[in-house]
Computed example of a mutant assay.
Amino acid sequence: MTGTARIRGGGAPGSSRIGFLASRIGSALTMLLGVCTLVFLLIHLVPGDPVEVMLGEGARPADQAALRHALGLDRPVWAQYLDYLARLSRLDLGQSLHAQRPVSDLLAERVGPTAILAVSSLSLAILLAIPLGVLAAQYRGRVVDRAAMTFSMLGAAVPNFWLGPLLILVFSLWLGWTPVSGREGALSLILPTVTLGTGMAAVLARMVRSSVLEVLGEDYVRTARAKGLGPAAVLWRHALRNAWLPVLTLIGLQFGALLGGAVITETVFSWPGLGSLLVEAIQTRDYPLVQGAVLLIALTYLAVNTTTDLLYAAMDPRIRAV
């Protein structure tokens, strides 16, 4: 959760909630401005000339100068930055240098596939992680716990750029069950989802296990056991319900990162999402498209993170921003 939280003993609930919301929105806007500035400076300072990419290295200097002037790339960097901020204030992301189309249109075409991949991957991660984490906590130190944590370690250690090609080799080339790459129906979603979802499930399962173990030592859990509730009821109705806060935070962070674009996975599977679009824009030195894609990724991540903070505070009203 972004920022620092503490427990307040006084103050009106309404003003406290408004202050919490204002603090989160202010922090998000400040971070967004910082991201925009950093990306603008980096994309203009890295080696490479978009004019050479568009015309080729053999183009005449006069043609290069004319195109650079037409695109406004011959202006000082500070002037381009001020113009960029002015366009952002009008919600204008500019024109793609390579595709000669509005950046907003290109981003709109790629948001849907990324959202589908993010939701499916997160759903798979939750379906795997919660039972594994709860069972590992319930049978701490036993075979189930060791097996779940072994899966967690493997899932966190295996990189996507290795797991993705391995899945393609086995399930697409050897068995022929799924398409090799691209977005060709529901079957083409399986391998990217497994590649992303298993890694997330590994991290999430460890968090669930840790949170449940911490809650199992609380007084109210011992009271529930003393009243005669069975192990399953204590675990699912009391322990897991109260262990949700840190788990919810991690889910929000992971979902924000996924919506921002899983660059490696989308590139491996040629999935037409934001991640692959960002890679294409960087390769062609398409400044407006890179800036627009990173801005959307950052905005999505901040929006999900801020929403997670608000949900966190709603679940535990004692939490308020400093």
Rank of each mutant, 00 (worst) to 15 (best):
L85G: 13
H98T: 15
T193Q: 08
L45H: 07
L127W: 15
V294D: 00
V322L: 05
A70M: 06
D145Q: 12
A201R: 15
L85Y: 10
G112A: 12
A303Q: 07
R183I: 00
G164Q: 02
S120L: 14
S210R: 09
V263Q: 00
L311W: 08
W78R: 12
E218S: 07
V51D: 10
G230E: 02
P102F: 00
V215G: 06
F20A: 11
G133A: 13
A313K: 02
G10C: 05
Y139N: 11
P272H: 05
L91H: 10
T265I: 11
L213Q: 10
W244P: 02
G19F: 01
R24I: 04
L107M: 05
P159M: 08
T223S: 14
S172A: 14
G228W: 11
R110W: 15
V77S: 12
L245V: 15
R225L: 12
S123H: 00
A303H: 03
Y312S: 13
T198F: 13
R237H: 10
T178G: 00
P102K: 13
L163I: 04
K227D: 04
I168C: 07
L311F: 13
L107P: 01
L295Q: 06
Y84L: 10
A202V: 08
L132K: 09
D63A: 15
G19R: 14
V247G: 10
G256I: 04
A314T: 10
V194N: 06
G56N: 03
M54C: 07
G3A: 03
A22R: 13
P246Y: 06
S96D: 08
T249M: 07
T267P: 06
